[in-house]
Amino acid sequence: MDLNVKNEEKGTLVSVTGRMDAVSSPEFEKELGRLIGEGNVNFVIDLNGLDYISSSGLRSVLVTAKKLKGVKGQILLASLQAVVKEVFAISGFSTIIPIYESIEEAMTAL
């Protein structure tokens, strides 16, 4: 898994590529925790390059979303591949974490 962080006008864009599994997802949680600690509270997560996610990956997204809720921040997901979208749908996370078709749409919604 690789993370690429870019500061945009309305918030922080984090692009995730590769796989979010039990080995790699703690790294996502840690990096997002670090960014939140630095005072960033509005995030768009670009998942266009994410090929795979397991419950561990979802857990790290949920932990991040809970942290952001506490500081009145937002986490929006964008550009999910079909298989990743399915995992979000099965878990019911699609109803608690906003998902957008494109980065542009998510950025507009921030």
């Binding site: 397991s54 419950s55 561990s56 979802l58 857990r59 949920l62 809970k66 809720k69 878990s91 608690i96």
Partner: peptide, 10 residues
């Protein structure tokens, strides 16, 4: 979101 358990999904 506030009531979601961390875990149990696998």
């Amino acid at each position: 979101i506030g009531d979601r358990e961390i875990g149990g999904l696998g």
